[in-house]
Nucleic acid binder design. Structure first.
Length: 313
DNA sequence: AAGGTTTTCAACCGCAAACGG
DNA sequence: ACCGTTTGCGGTTGAAAACCT
Protein backbone atom coordinates (compact mmCIF):
# COMPACT_ATOMS: atom_id res chain seq x y z
CA UNK A 1 0.00 0.00 0.00
CA UNK A 2 1.53 3.22 -1.08
CA UNK A 3 0.86 6.59 0.24
CA UNK A 4 -2.07 8.48 -1.23
CA UNK A 5 -0.94 11.00 -3.82
CA UNK A 6 -1.31 14.62 -2.84
CA UNK A 7 -3.28 15.35 -5.99
CA UNK A 8 -4.70 13.72 -9.06
CA UNK A 9 -1.56 13.37 -11.11
CA UNK A 10 -3.46 12.81 -14.32
CA UNK A 11 -5.35 16.06 -14.01
CA UNK A 12 -2.65 18.44 -12.98
CA UNK A 13 -0.44 20.42 -15.22
CA UNK A 14 3.30 20.16 -14.76
CA UNK A 15 6.20 22.17 -15.97
CA UNK A 16 6.83 25.88 -16.15
CA UNK A 17 4.19 28.28 -14.95
CA UNK A 18 2.53 30.60 -17.41
CA UNK A 19 2.10 34.29 -16.63
CA UNK A 20 -1.63 33.69 -16.44
CA UNK A 21 -1.23 31.01 -13.82
CA UNK A 22 1.14 33.20 -11.90
CA UNK A 23 -1.21 36.14 -11.85
CA UNK A 24 -4.14 33.97 -10.84
CA UNK A 25 -2.26 32.52 -7.93
CA UNK A 26 -0.68 35.76 -6.90
CA UNK A 27 -3.81 37.85 -6.96
CA UNK A 28 -5.77 35.23 -5.09
CA UNK A 29 -3.24 34.87 -2.32
CA UNK A 30 -2.75 38.60 -2.03
CA UNK A 31 -6.46 39.06 -1.56
CA UNK A 32 -7.40 35.97 0.41
CA UNK A 33 -4.24 34.43 1.72
CA UNK A 34 -3.56 30.75 1.25
CA UNK A 35 -6.58 29.78 3.26
CA UNK A 36 -4.42 27.45 5.26
CA UNK A 37 -4.78 24.70 2.74
CA UNK A 38 -2.56 24.53 -0.26
CA UNK A 39 -4.09 21.31 -1.46
CA UNK A 40 -7.49 22.87 -1.88
CA UNK A 41 -6.24 26.19 -3.19
CA UNK A 42 -5.71 25.32 -6.87
CA UNK A 43 -9.26 24.01 -7.16
CA UNK A 44 -10.62 27.16 -5.58
CA UNK A 45 -8.99 29.36 -8.17
CA UNK A 46 -9.35 27.03 -11.10
CA UNK A 47 -5.72 26.14 -11.52
CA UNK A 48 -4.85 22.71 -12.80
CA UNK A 49 -1.87 22.51 -10.55
CA UNK A 50 -0.86 20.45 -7.58
CA UNK A 51 -1.13 22.26 -4.26
CA UNK A 52 2.50 21.62 -3.59
CA UNK A 53 3.37 23.18 -6.88
CA UNK A 54 1.34 26.27 -6.01
CA UNK A 55 3.03 26.56 -2.67
CA UNK A 56 6.47 26.27 -4.24
CA UNK A 57 5.65 28.81 -6.90
CA UNK A 58 4.43 31.28 -4.33
CA UNK A 59 7.29 30.80 -1.94
CA UNK A 60 10.02 30.88 -4.52
CA UNK A 61 8.76 33.43 -7.01
CA UNK A 62 5.50 35.16 -6.44
CA UNK A 63 5.89 36.11 -2.82
CA UNK A 64 6.87 39.74 -2.30
CA UNK A 65 10.51 40.68 -1.90
CA UNK A 66 12.10 37.67 -3.38
CA UNK A 67 15.62 38.55 -4.37
CA UNK A 68 16.97 37.08 -7.59
CA UNK A 69 20.29 37.63 -9.20
CA UNK A 70 23.86 37.66 -8.07
CA UNK A 71 24.85 36.74 -4.56
CA UNK A 72 27.15 39.11 -2.78
CA UNK A 73 30.45 38.17 -1.21
CA UNK A 74 28.87 38.56 2.18
CA UNK A 75 26.09 36.20 1.25
CA UNK A 76 28.66 33.74 -0.02
CA UNK A 77 30.42 33.88 3.30
CA UNK A 78 27.28 33.35 5.27
CA UNK A 79 26.23 30.42 3.15
CA UNK A 80 29.60 28.77 3.36
CA UNK A 81 29.88 29.33 7.05
CA UNK A 82 26.51 27.92 7.79
CA UNK A 83 26.99 25.01 5.44
CA UNK A 84 30.13 24.12 7.29
CA UNK A 85 28.29 24.26 10.57
CA UNK A 86 24.90 22.76 9.84
CA UNK A 87 25.23 21.13 6.47
CA UNK A 88 22.64 21.31 3.77
CA UNK A 89 19.84 22.70 5.84
CA UNK A 90 18.90 25.20 3.23
CA UNK A 91 15.81 26.50 4.90
CA UNK A 92 17.80 27.52 7.95
CA UNK A 93 20.50 29.06 5.81
CA UNK A 94 17.87 30.89 3.78
CA UNK A 95 16.45 32.30 6.97
CA UNK A 96 19.69 34.23 7.43
CA UNK A 97 19.55 35.75 3.97
CA UNK A 98 16.47 37.91 3.63
CA UNK A 99 14.97 37.68 0.19
CA UNK A 100 16.71 34.47 -0.71
CA UNK A 101 14.86 31.21 -0.89
CA UNK A 102 16.17 27.84 0.15
CA UNK A 103 15.84 26.65 -3.42
CA UNK A 104 17.89 29.56 -4.68
CA UNK A 105 20.61 28.99 -2.16
CA UNK A 106 20.66 25.30 -2.80
CA UNK A 107 21.02 25.86 -6.53
CA UNK A 108 23.64 28.50 -6.00
CA UNK A 109 25.64 26.26 -3.74
CA UNK A 110 25.41 23.25 -6.00
CA UNK A 111 26.20 25.02 -9.22
CA UNK A 112 28.54 27.78 -8.31
CA UNK A 113 29.64 28.25 -4.75
CA UNK A 114 30.89 24.72 -4.40
CA UNK A 115 32.98 25.19 -7.50
CA UNK A 116 34.16 28.53 -6.28
CA UNK A 117 35.45 26.89 -3.15
CA UNK A 118 37.16 24.28 -5.20
CA UNK A 119 38.77 27.04 -7.16
CA UNK A 120 37.94 25.42 -10.41
CA UNK A 121 35.05 27.42 -11.58
CA UNK A 122 35.10 28.90 -14.95
CA UNK A 123 37.93 31.28 -15.41
CA UNK A 124 35.73 34.29 -15.52
CA UNK A 125 33.87 33.15 -12.42
CA UNK A 126 31.05 35.28 -13.57
CA UNK A 127 27.66 34.50 -14.85
CA UNK A 128 27.52 34.27 -18.55
CA UNK A 129 25.13 37.15 -18.41
CA UNK A 130 23.24 38.68 -15.61
CA UNK A 131 21.45 35.67 -14.23
CA UNK A 132 18.39 37.46 -13.04
CA UNK A 133 17.97 39.15 -16.35
CA UNK A 134 18.52 35.98 -18.22
CA UNK A 135 16.03 34.05 -16.18
CA UNK A 136 13.58 36.85 -16.30
CA UNK A 137 13.74 36.90 -20.04
CA UNK A 138 13.48 33.17 -20.23
CA UNK A 139 10.57 32.68 -17.94
CA UNK A 140 9.01 36.10 -17.79
CA UNK A 141 9.75 36.31 -14.12
CA UNK A 142 10.48 39.99 -14.13
CA UNK A 143 6.83 40.79 -14.17
CA UNK A 144 6.77 39.68 -10.60
CA UNK A 145 9.74 41.49 -9.29
CA UNK A 146 9.39 42.62 -5.71
CA UNK A 147 9.04 46.24 -4.77
CA UNK A 148 12.26 48.13 -4.92
CA UNK A 149 13.44 50.94 -2.78
CA UNK A 150 13.75 53.80 -5.18
CA UNK A 151 16.59 55.36 -3.22
CA UNK A 152 18.83 52.38 -2.82
CA UNK A 153 17.57 50.19 -5.61
CA UNK A 154 17.36 47.48 -3.04
CA UNK A 155 14.33 45.41 -2.34
CA UNK A 156 12.34 46.26 0.65
CA UNK A 157 12.54 43.83 3.51
CA UNK A 158 9.67 41.48 3.92
CA UNK A 159 10.50 38.55 6.13
CA UNK A 160 8.41 38.95 9.20
CA UNK A 161 8.23 35.27 10.00
CA UNK A 162 11.82 34.44 9.38
CA UNK A 163 14.02 34.01 12.40
CA UNK A 164 17.20 36.00 12.39
CA UNK A 165 20.55 35.48 13.90
CA UNK A 166 20.68 36.42 17.51
CA UNK A 167 24.17 37.66 16.84
CA UNK A 168 25.05 38.88 13.42
CA UNK A 169 28.07 37.60 11.65
CA UNK A 170 30.62 40.33 11.95
CA UNK A 171 33.90 40.83 10.23
CA UNK A 172 36.95 40.42 12.40
CA UNK A 173 40.64 40.29 12.04
CA UNK A 174 41.99 36.84 11.86
CA UNK A 175 45.23 35.30 12.83
CA UNK A 176 43.73 31.94 13.41
CA UNK A 177 44.02 28.60 11.80
CA UNK A 178 43.48 27.36 8.35
CA UNK A 179 42.67 23.99 7.01
CA UNK A 180 46.28 23.09 7.32
CA UNK A 181 46.00 19.38 7.03
CA UNK A 182 46.07 17.99 3.54
CA UNK A 183 44.05 14.93 4.38
CA UNK A 184 41.28 17.00 5.77
CA UNK A 185 41.31 19.38 2.88
CA UNK A 186 41.28 16.52 0.48
CA UNK A 187 38.26 15.09 2.12
CA UNK A 188 36.45 18.37 1.95
CA UNK A 189 37.30 18.99 -1.64
CA UNK A 190 36.60 15.40 -2.57
CA UNK A 191 33.28 15.74 -0.88
CA UNK A 192 32.68 18.84 -2.90
CA UNK A 193 33.48 16.99 -6.06
CA UNK A 194 37.22 17.34 -6.52
CA UNK A 195 39.40 14.56 -7.76
CA UNK A 196 42.91 13.98 -6.58
CA UNK A 197 45.73 11.63 -7.05
CA UNK A 198 48.45 11.11 -4.51
CA UNK A 199 50.69 13.36 -6.53
CA UNK A 200 48.55 16.35 -6.95
CA UNK A 201 48.64 17.74 -3.50
CA UNK A 202 50.91 20.64 -4.37
CA UNK A 203 48.39 21.84 -6.89
CA UNK A 204 45.49 22.00 -4.54
CA UNK A 205 44.07 25.44 -4.36
CA UNK A 206 43.41 26.24 -0.80
CA UNK A 207 45.08 28.45 1.69
CA UNK A 208 47.63 26.81 3.88
CA UNK A 209 48.82 28.97 6.69
CA UNK A 210 48.47 31.95 4.51
CA UNK A 211 45.75 34.42 4.48
CA UNK A 212 45.92 37.04 1.84
CA UNK A 213 45.21 40.56 2.77
CA UNK A 214 42.16 40.54 0.57
CA UNK A 215 40.56 37.69 2.37
CA UNK A 216 37.76 38.49 4.70
CA UNK A 217 37.04 36.54 7.77
CA UNK A 218 33.89 36.33 9.78
CA UNK A 219 33.36 35.30 13.31
CA UNK A 220 30.18 33.94 14.69
CA UNK A 221 30.50 34.61 18.39
CA UNK A 222 27.35 32.84 19.40
CA UNK A 223 24.69 32.38 16.86
CA UNK A 224 21.36 31.03 17.76
CA UNK A 225 19.37 29.79 14.85
CA UNK A 226 15.80 29.03 15.60
CA UNK A 227 13.76 27.27 13.02
CA UNK A 228 10.21 28.44 13.24
CA UNK A 229 8.95 25.26 11.67
CA UNK A 230 10.63 22.79 13.92
CA UNK A 231 11.57 24.88 16.89
CA UNK A 232 15.05 23.64 16.53
CA UNK A 233 17.64 25.87 17.99
CA UNK A 234 21.27 25.73 17.17
CA UNK A 235 24.15 27.56 18.59
CA UNK A 236 27.42 28.09 16.93
CA UNK A 237 30.07 29.02 19.37
CA UNK A 238 32.82 31.39 18.36
CA UNK A 239 33.33 29.94 14.97
CA UNK A 240 35.40 31.88 12.51
CA UNK A 241 35.09 31.39 8.80
CA UNK A 242 37.48 32.60 6.17
CA UNK A 243 36.21 32.21 2.72
CA UNK A 244 37.42 33.67 -0.51
CA UNK A 245 37.51 32.66 -4.10
CA UNK A 246 40.19 30.10 -3.53
CA UNK A 247 39.21 28.31 -0.41
CA UNK A 248 38.11 28.56 3.14
CA UNK A 249 39.24 28.15 6.67
CA UNK A 250 37.50 27.58 9.91
CA UNK A 251 38.34 28.11 13.49
CA UNK A 252 36.25 27.35 16.46
CA UNK A 253 36.34 28.14 20.13
CA UNK A 254 33.38 26.22 21.44
CA UNK A 255 33.26 24.88 24.88
CA UNK A 256 34.17 21.29 25.69
CA UNK A 257 30.99 20.72 27.67
CA UNK A 258 28.95 20.95 24.53
CA UNK A 259 30.35 17.83 23.05
CA UNK A 260 28.10 15.51 24.93
CA UNK A 261 25.05 17.57 24.20
CA UNK A 262 25.92 17.65 20.58
CA UNK A 263 26.36 13.93 20.44
CA UNK A 264 23.08 13.27 22.09
CA UNK A 265 20.90 15.81 20.42
CA UNK A 266 22.31 16.77 17.11
CA UNK A 267 19.68 16.08 14.52
CA UNK A 268 20.96 18.00 11.58
CA UNK A 269 22.44 16.59 8.50
CA UNK A 270 26.13 16.97 7.99
CA UNK A 271 26.26 15.56 4.53
CA UNK A 272 29.55 13.85 5.07
CA UNK A 273 31.20 16.95 6.38
CA UNK A 274 31.53 15.48 9.82
CA UNK A 275 35.20 15.00 9.29
CA UNK A 276 35.60 18.74 9.31
CA UNK A 277 34.62 18.87 12.89
CA UNK A 278 36.19 15.83 14.36
CA UNK A 279 39.42 17.64 14.89
CA UNK A 280 37.73 20.66 16.27
CA UNK A 281 36.57 18.52 19.10
CA UNK A 282 39.67 16.48 19.51
CA UNK A 283 41.74 19.60 19.58
CA UNK A 284 39.48 21.63 21.70
CA UNK A 285 42.23 22.43 24.13
CA UNK A 286 44.18 24.29 21.51
CA UNK A 287 41.21 26.12 20.17
CA UNK A 288 40.06 27.15 23.56
CA UNK A 289 43.39 28.60 24.32
CA UNK A 290 43.21 30.61 21.17
CA UNK A 291 45.86 28.68 19.30
CA UNK A 292 45.54 27.22 15.90
CA UNK A 293 44.61 23.63 15.96
CA UNK A 294 46.25 20.94 13.98
CA UNK A 295 44.36 18.81 11.51
CA UNK A 296 46.47 15.81 12.13
CA UNK A 297 44.97 12.65 13.43
CA UNK A 298 41.38 11.97 12.57
CA UNK A 299 40.84 9.44 15.27
CA UNK A 300 38.05 11.21 17.08
CA UNK A 301 34.90 11.71 15.14
CA UNK A 302 32.54 14.20 16.53
CA UNK A 303 30.24 16.95 15.45
CA UNK A 304 30.41 20.63 14.86
CA UNK A 305 30.00 23.18 17.56
CA UNK A 306 26.29 23.39 17.29
CA UNK A 307 23.87 22.92 20.04
CA UNK A 308 20.46 21.51 19.46
CA UNK A 309 18.34 22.97 22.13
CA UNK A 310 15.39 20.71 22.69
CA UNK A 311 15.41 20.96 26.43
CA UNK A 312 13.30 24.06 26.44
CA UNK A 313 10.54 22.64 24.36
C1' DA B 1 27.25 28.77 -38.57
C1' DA B 2 26.32 24.43 -36.68
C1' DG B 3 26.44 20.98 -33.55
C1' DG B 4 27.92 19.33 -29.15
C1' DT B 5 28.77 20.16 -24.31
C1' DT B 6 28.26 22.45 -20.03
C1' DT B 7 25.86 25.24 -16.81
C1' DT B 8 21.96 27.05 -14.63
C1' DC B 9 17.85 26.92 -12.12
C1' DA B 10 12.71 26.12 -12.00
C1' DA B 11 10.10 22.50 -10.88
C1' DC B 12 9.21 17.90 -9.38
C1' DC B 13 9.58 13.96 -6.19
C1' DG B 14 9.43 11.55 -2.05
C1' DC B 15 10.16 11.46 2.76
C1' DA B 16 9.48 13.03 7.41
C1' DA B 17 7.48 16.19 10.55
C1' DA B 18 3.57 18.63 12.01
C1' DC B 19 -1.13 19.03 12.53
C1' DG B 20 -5.85 17.96 13.58
C1' DG B 21 -9.75 15.01 14.40
C1' DA C 1 -2.50 7.18 21.25
C1' DC C 2 -3.61 6.57 16.71
C1' DC C 3 -4.25 7.67 12.01
C1' DG C 4 -5.06 10.33 7.91
C1' DT C 5 -3.91 14.69 5.81
C1' DT C 6 -1.09 18.62 4.96
C1' DT C 7 3.16 21.07 5.03
C1' DG C 8 8.08 21.66 4.78
C1' DC C 9 12.30 20.23 3.29
C1' DG C 10 16.26 18.58 0.62
C1' DG C 11 17.70 15.84 -3.36
C1' DT C 12 17.19 15.30 -8.16
C1' DT C 13 15.81 16.11 -12.88
C1' DG C 14 15.35 18.14 -17.28
C1' DA C 15 14.68 22.09 -20.37
C1' DA C 16 16.80 26.02 -21.96
C1' DA C 17 20.54 29.15 -22.31
C1' DA C 18 25.35 29.88 -22.68
C1' DC C 19 29.52 28.46 -24.13
C1' DC C 20 32.96 25.75 -26.77
C1' DT C 21 34.96 23.52 -30.77
Amino acid sequence: MGRAPCCDKANVKKGPWSPEEDSKLKSYIEQNGTGGNWIALPQKIGLRRCGKSCRLRWLNYLRPNIKHGEFSEEEDNIICGLYISIGSRWSIIAAQLPGRTDNDIKNYWNTRLKKKLLGKQRKAHQPRKAIGLKQGMRKGIDHHSPPVDSNTNNQLPYWPEIPVLATPIVPCSNQELQFNDHTCIRKLLTKLGGEFSDDDTPNLQYPVNDISSTQQSYVVPSIEIVSSASNDAYQLENTTYNIDGEGMAVSSGYKPDYEEMVYENLPQRLDGLEFLFGNMVSHEAETNSGKSFEWGEMSTMSYPPIISNYEGL
